[in-house]
Design a binder for these strands. Structure first.
Length: 796
RNA sequence: GGGCCCGUGGUCUAGUGGUAUGACGCAACCUUUACAAGGUUGAGGUCGCCGGUUCGAUUCCGGCUGGGCCCACCA
């Protein structure tokens, strides 16, 4: 029968919403289970990765609910980022610079409601058990307050400080950018060989792609084992066009003698290596680029130019003066700002930092306590922590974002912090209430905003109402689960741990589950430009939401998954199968009272299937407890389809058709029992189909309004019986053999058989199975013989 | 360059110290009182390659190779 899955799903989604099935009950006495869900950017669309990750976490949420927890399953929108600001600018045809920051934040909050709504509808369409009343946004008032409060708390602890620091800078956007905003770009350039003179008349040749940085040259580096340059080490080299400035030649193991000439000239700052070298050598910093990307007076003849023009100019000048020995075209990878594709520059600027390098060992020790699923993902965090070289730069020179709650005294430079109870504030709009210690009341507000991760790393504190409800916070923090992608372990997971360790002195969660990415069928990243994007909506339209969820349940957690549409097809088939089997069970059991199972009236196949059912419950439960969702559904699916539907149902049909005797009643009770328990086992995965079955056929068994309020089934150990399963296997094996014979004879499976000859190893065992086999395969008479292996012959 | 993961029939995958699970696809058969978006059956794999441990390895160890990811990236 064709079943309209879409109508069914819409019906139950409406029902859950109306009955508030997933509402978190703050007053409940049950133990809470809280999930620190990842807030997606408000782009307006839900992509396949979202659908996958949120469904995976939903399996856990639904299981925990059935396992008796008071589940806290919130949702957040991330609108505290540049992409959001740009989206709103474009949509409204405005520029953020036209507004005061507070004003623009309001515009963003109002201007993204439409996208939020669209996304919410999309997320709801996959049947997530989210409590939408717990919604938060990373730029709304509670988030701003939490972030600023976090800053004040860190300040109190002496954990934040300000200093001039090398900063990655986009000369086109005139802002500092984070490492995460970098992109690699292949660029054609020229590799320029330049010969310098040493003060004692020698000549040393270097190669560079950045000749325009020559005025900022502070040293020349060579490898200590490089014999060619041994004689230059410690000597001074004259830098052209700098009024006779001289720099020293240093030994440095980072230099590759094979690359270029084997000698490197070191400028402040050409790339990230230069920054490291500066810190190591304690050389002076010569800054020649302004924040707007132009060269300053220290650049001498290059003053006023921009990078590209400066490069052209200096090459001309160097050639004229005879310094250039060679130029070769080169294609190399440069770091560009992902938004505008401009190559980044490194400048110094005053920045706020969180001091955390001293605690590296502590982070690694704490990460050890955290439960990682899969466990190997922890190593990514270890790697990251071990590789940390700088403190956390939390300031961004951006208009849109959450501002630092800080003013500076114009007279004495004193840092004035906002009062906790006034948060959130915008220091550009408000002023400190008291005078400065120096007596002045002339203040200037900090213009910078927080790095978005400074706020995102507080989602547990935002969720648990750290700044607004102490009692609730005490009860809820730390949270239980953080589900997230493996790409942001270093950023989101790590920074969240750092914050919680500073603020609360403990880990923010008990468990972290790390999911992989959804790739296209060939294993490539899905992207608009490649045209290989698969939309979840289309898949739901084609196969149903439960089918999409089934697909999401299959992969092992942590691995990247090539998207295979056929998995949705098998999902849909499984759902159809379950609904049909349920209909059958109803049909043949509706006139039988759903009584308790009487062990005395059970037939061998009944005992076998009940044993297998309870074993399956055990397996599925164990897998869920280990957060291995794919192993929680797999045994259930295989049990239901390959054992229950393919064999058991066929084996009991003749017992349950028509009027039922004791044996028929027993079979009916077993059918119901298996269907009911299986429905509960699949409820976290295919919640719509499970609800449909429960509401249609098991209304009386429901304790609450919904199947999703039922208790997770417990395995009945007394029904697990190795011998019964062996008997069941023998029945199934003989039935399978007979099916083979019937197929070979081109007969339908219900074709009557006059006589069957069966060779089996254990005649005694077969005696018990004989009846069932006869009934199932419509065999009149069986002649059993002892044989080495199972063999069947049929006479029609 | 450092770290991590993966390599099982055409495709995707489960799994285990004794040659292997399921799905999709393919072929044949079956209108059988749940299901034709079905059922039954079948073909198809030296479990990446080479060594080692072992009575025996797809499973354990080492190396190699291919793919992927994260980090550091070459002036």
């Amino acid at each position: 029968m064709t079943i309209d899955l879409h109508a069914m799903e819409a019906k139950w989604q409406g029902f859950w919403k109306k009955e508030k099935i997933y509402k978190f009950d703050a007053k409940s006495k049950k133990k809470a289970y809280s999930i620190d869900t990842p807030p997606p950017t408000v782009s307006g669309t839900m992509h396949m990765g979202h659908a996958f990750a949120f469904t995976q976490q939903d399996f856990i949420a639904r299981y925990k609910k059935m396992a008796g927890f008071n589940v806290f399953h919130p949702f957040g929108f991330d609108n505290n980022g540049l992409p959001t600001a740009l989206m709103v600018e474009k949509k409204k045809g405005i520029k953020q610079s036209m507004f005061e920051r507070d004003e623009f934040i309001k515009i963003v909050l109002g201007g993204t409601l439409e996208e939020e709504k669209r996304m919410r509808t999309a997320f709801e369409s996959i049947g997530l058990s989210i409590d939408w009343s717990l919604l938060y946004r990373t730029i709304d008032k509670p988030a701003r307050k939490t972030a600023q409060y976090s800053f004040l708390d860190l300040h109190r602890q002496g954990r934040v400080y300000q200093k001039d620091a090398p900063t990655m800078w986009c000369p086109s956007c005139a802002t500092a950018i984070a490492q995460a905003e970098l992109q690699d770009k292949e660029e054609k350039s020229s590799f320029v060989y330049i010969q310098f003179e040493t003060t004692d008349g020698g000549k040393i040749e270097i190669a560079t792609t950045r000749p325009e940085l020559m005025p900022a040259c502070v040293a020349i580096h060579v490898h200590p084992d490089d014999k060619r340059y041994k004689k230059f080490v410690g000597k001074e080299v004259k830098i052209p066009f700098t009024g006779g400035r001289k720099v020293k030649v240093f030994e440095n193991r980072d230099v590759d003698p094979e690359f270029g000439t084997g000698a490197v000239y070191h400028c402040t700052f050409g790339d990230l290596d230069d920054v490291e070298w500066i810190l190591e050598t304690n050389l002076p910093i010569i800054e020649i680029i302004n924040k707007d990307g132009t060269f300053n007076e220290k650049a001498g003849i290059l003053k006023g130019l921009r990078t590209k023009e400066a490069r052209k100019r200096i090459i001309e000048e160097l050639e004229k003066a005879g310094y250039i020995t060679k130029q070769e075209p080169i294609t190399h990878v440069v770091n560009v700002h992902e938004r505008c594709k401009t190559p980044i520059e490194i400048l110094t600027a005053k920045q706020w930092f969180v001091k955390y390098l001293d605690l590296k060992e502590d982070y690694i020790a704490k990460a050890e306590i955290l439960q990682w699923v899969p466990p190997y993902m922890k190593k990514r965090l270890d790697n990251w922590v071990n590789g940390l070289k700088w403190d956390w730069n939390i300031s961004r020179q951006r208009h849109y974002g959450i501002p630092f709650p800080v003013w500076y005294c114009r007279k004495c430079g004193e840092v004035i912090l906002a009062d906790e109870k006034d948060l959130p504030i915008d220091p550009l709009k408000s002023k400190p209430k008291k005078k400065c210690r120096c007596g002045s009341s002339d203040f200037v507000g900090e213009k910078d905003t927080f790095d978005t991760w400074f706020t995102s790393s507080l989602t547990p504190q935002i969720n648990c109402k750290w700044v607004s409800d102490k009692k609730f916070f005490e009860k809820m923090f730390p949270m239980d689960l953080r589900p997230q992608g493996h790409d942001i372990i270093a950023l989101w997971a790590f920074n969240t741990m750092v914050k919680a360790l500073f603020h609360q002195g403990k880990l923010p969660w008990e468990t972290i589950t790390v999911n992989g990415w959804i790739l296209d069928p060939k294993g490539k990243k899905m992207s608009k430009s490649l045209g290989n994007v698969v939309k979840p909506e289309d898949m739901i339209q084609k196969y149903s939401a439960d089918a999409l969820r089934y697909w999401a349940s299959l992969p092992v957690l942590g691995e990247d998954i090539p998207f295979m549409e056929k998995e949705l097809l098998s999902g849909k088939k499984f759902i159809t199968k379950m609904l049909n089997a349920a209909r059958f069970v109803e049909m043949v059991t509706k006139d039988v009272k759903a009584g308790k199972i009487d062990k005395k009236t059970l037939m061998p196949e009944d005992r076998a299937i009940l044993s297998r059912l309870n074993r399956t419950v055990k397996e599925s439960t164990d897998a869920f407890e280990r957060f291995e969702v794919s192993k929680a559904i797999n045994p259930t699916r295989n049990f239901f389809w390959l054992e229950f539907a393919d064999f058991y149902i066929e084996e009991v049909k003749t017992r349950v058709y028509g009027k039922k005797n004791a044996s028929g009643k027993a079979a009916a009770a077993v059918l119901q029992e298996v269907l009911w328990k299986t429905t509960l086992l699949v409820a976290p995965f295919i919640p719509h189909a499970a609800e449909e079955i429960a509401q249609t056929y098991f209304k009386k068994r429901l304790k609450g309004k919904s199947v999703h309020e039922e208790a997770w089934p417990k395995a009945d150990e007394s029904l697990i019986d190795e011998k019964a399963e062996e008997a069941g296997q023998l029945i199934n094996a003989v039935v399978a053999e007979m099916r083979k014979e019937k197929t070979a004879a081109k007969k339908p499976l219900n074709a009557p058989v006059k006589k069957a000859t069966v060779e089996v190893e254990d005649l005694k065992k077969f005696k018990e199975a004989e009846d069932t086999v006869k009934r199932t395969m419509a065999v009149e008479k069986i002649e059993a013989k002892k044989g080495k292996e199972l063999k069947v012959e049929l006479e029609f």
